[in-house]
Each structure stands twice: as structure tokens, then as C-alpha cells.
Design a binder for these strands. Sequence first.
DNA 1: CGCCTTAACGCAAACAGATTGCTTTAATGA
DNA 2: TCATTAAAGCAATCTGTTTGCGTTAAGGCG
Lengths: 188, 188
Amino acid sequence: MVRPGGRSARVQASVHAAVRELASEVGRDALTVPMIAQRAGVTPSTVYRRWGDLQELLSDVAVERLRPDTAPQDHGTLSCDLTAWAEQFLDEMSSPAGRAYIRDALLGDPDGGNAGRCSAYAAEQIGVVLARAAGRGEPAPGVETVIDQVVAPMMYRILFRPDGLDTSYAHRLVAGVLTPAGERVSPG
Amino acid sequence: MVRPGGRSARVQASVHAAVRELASEVGRDALTVPMIAQRAGVTPSTVYRRWGDLQELLSDVAVERLRPDTAPQDHGTLSCDLTAWAEQFLDEMSSPAGRAYIRDALLGDPDGGNAGRCSAYAAEQIGVVLARAAGRGEPAPGVETVIDQVVAPMMYRILFRPDGLDTSYAHRLVAGVLTPAGERVSPG
DNA sequence: CGCCTTAACGCAAACAGATTGCTTTAATGA
DNA sequence: TCATTAAAGCAATCTGTTTGCGTTAAGGCG
């Protein structure tokens, strides 16, 4: 029996808000469960019983913040749409805050559900862009292809090689996935 | 003034060994610093002073275990070499143990140094394979291209979508990076 | 509308891991 | 061998975590 409404919902909202507030006040690394509980007007045991530990709570909050709040903008062509989306994605995700959210989402995630949700967000956004292109009659790759050739390389570098990432890298990846291979140049 | 030898080295080796032993005995999630310290014949404060916290210690150990112990085998052609390497990489990294190591390496890694080291290991192995191909006179892509189109997609799926990964996925990725784009099929 | 069941929360005590000042050991260089 | 000092040991303290039990209130039902 799950109880999604009423007091439980208020506690969840209050705790999430407390995490966001305190993270911006004292910094993410200084967060503790008792501190969050006090700000949320809740006892620590409530947090531990619901989320298990600090990492799972942070993972929960991170996934919410990584959820796109709006559909990708329509620039008229697949190339422009994908480029703009990739540019924004890289920009947001490679920032210190973005990297912290990604790490948190991956971290406190025993069953992989939160990570899967993050990936689903990106896939959904890309799906919108590609469906739009199909509606225009433009030839377009599949969602999985874009994930493999655009999202995955950006995410890999964000996580494993944070240095030297810039807009032109996103541009090269998008160009690569849209360009017939003969004319392609190395994205390195 | 750093002291890499003598007692410090013994403590480091002893603690690392304790982590590996205990991880296989009681499971990674049950590890605690006091437990590790006792097994290593060391006081907890020593571990905290040297590694900061449990996550950084586990990150340290994880990176060591992710280091390849041998050069990629030579199968005679670039295609075979890369395929075999990618297959083994995916196999090792997508296992529960492999995923735990990757997560640990990413996790307790404030400055990104450990994650960078992991990426460098892969780049080095790929570099060997590609240099071998060049020695044979085979045409070969650059290391960065292979990382973008083979390593990154595998790692992305290991971290964000652990389901449905198999050998054929690695094969498709390698085929994709070695095949002139006109004849390419979608890797999805 | 009010009662019943029980999930979820509050409280507080007990526990365990993390931190720190001070002392002691031993690695390095002269 | 001696002087220096990084690193380890020890122990007290502090803070975060866990848990048993009583209380509150959400959701279901007559």
C-alpha cells in the first residue's frame, strides 16, 4: 500500500526543497542528513527510513533537476535542432553543477533506475527532434544511433575527461551523425 | 616531501589487500573503514588521514583493478584486434563487479584524476592496437575516434542502461568505426 | 460522514563510524 | 650516525546512523 498524497507528499517536497536550498548555501559536499532534516522540519529518522541514506536522497534530487522542463526548440531543420540540443546538453552537463548532478544520480542508485531515467530523458528529447524531422520529410538517423554517436561521447568525456570540452565538439559529433560517412572528418 | 617507500608503502599495500579480501568475503557494500583498518593491522585514523574517506579509498583500489595487466593480443588484423579488445572490455566492464569498480572509481574522485586514469588505460590499449595496424600498413582511425565511437557508447550503456548489452553490440560498434560510412548500418 | 487499518512520522536512546590533539615511530638526507 | 619531519598510533570526543516504540494521519469501507 503506497501513499503518494497528503503528509508523505509534503515531507518529500519539503526535504527536496531543503536539499536544493542547503546545497546552494553551504555547498553540496557539506550536506548532512540531520542538517537537511532540520531545514525541512522533519526528523532525521524520517529521511533515513524513506531514502536509506544521503546518497540515495541526493540521487533522487539530482534526477529531478536533470529532467528537461521544456521540449527542444524548433529551428526549422534537423541539423539546427540537433546541434542546438547537443550544444545545450553539453553546456549544462559539463558545468560543475551538471557534473555533480550526474555523479549523484549515478551514485546513490542501487538498482540503476535513476540512471535509466536520465538516459530516458535524453532519448525522449532526441525522439522529439527526430520525429519533427520525419514530419518535414528530412532523412534522419534513429534515436539509438544519435545516443551512440552524440550523447554517449559527450557523457563519456564529461565523466572521464572533463578537460577541453567545448561547443565545437558537440558540433562535430552532430555533423558526424548527419553526414554520409565518405565526407566525414575525424571528431578528435 | 613525499615518502613513497618503507612503512608508508607497506601500509598502502596492506590496506589495499584488506579491501580486496574483505570485498570478496563480506561484499563491497558491507565494507567499513574500521573493518578494513583492523584487517590491515592499522588504525582507522591512519586510513582517514591518508585517503580522506571510504569512497576515496575504494576509488583508489578500483582504479588499480581496472588497469589492464597485459597488452592486447595480436590477431593479425586491425578488425580482429579491435573486435577482440572491445569484446573483452564490454565483458569485463558490464559485469556486476566491473560496474561496481567503475562506479567506485568515478565516485570518490573529487578532482577527476582517477576517472582520467581509467580513460587513459583504454586509450593506451587502443593506441597499441592502432599502432600495430599502422605497422602492417592497414588504414586505421585515430584513437579519439575509436574512443568516441566504441568506448563511449559501451560505457554510456554500462552506466545508464545496463540491460541488453551483449557481444554483438561491441561487434557493431567496431564494424561501424572501421566501415566506410556508405555501407554502414545502424548500430541500434 | 465517521470508523478502521496501517503506512509513515516523531522521539529518544543506543550504536558506530568519523574527527582530532597529542605522542611515538621510522623514512630520508646530511 | 644524527637531525628532521612525514606518517602512524592512540584515545577522547563528536557527529552521523540505527532502532524500538508510541503517535499521527492517509486511504478504504460501511
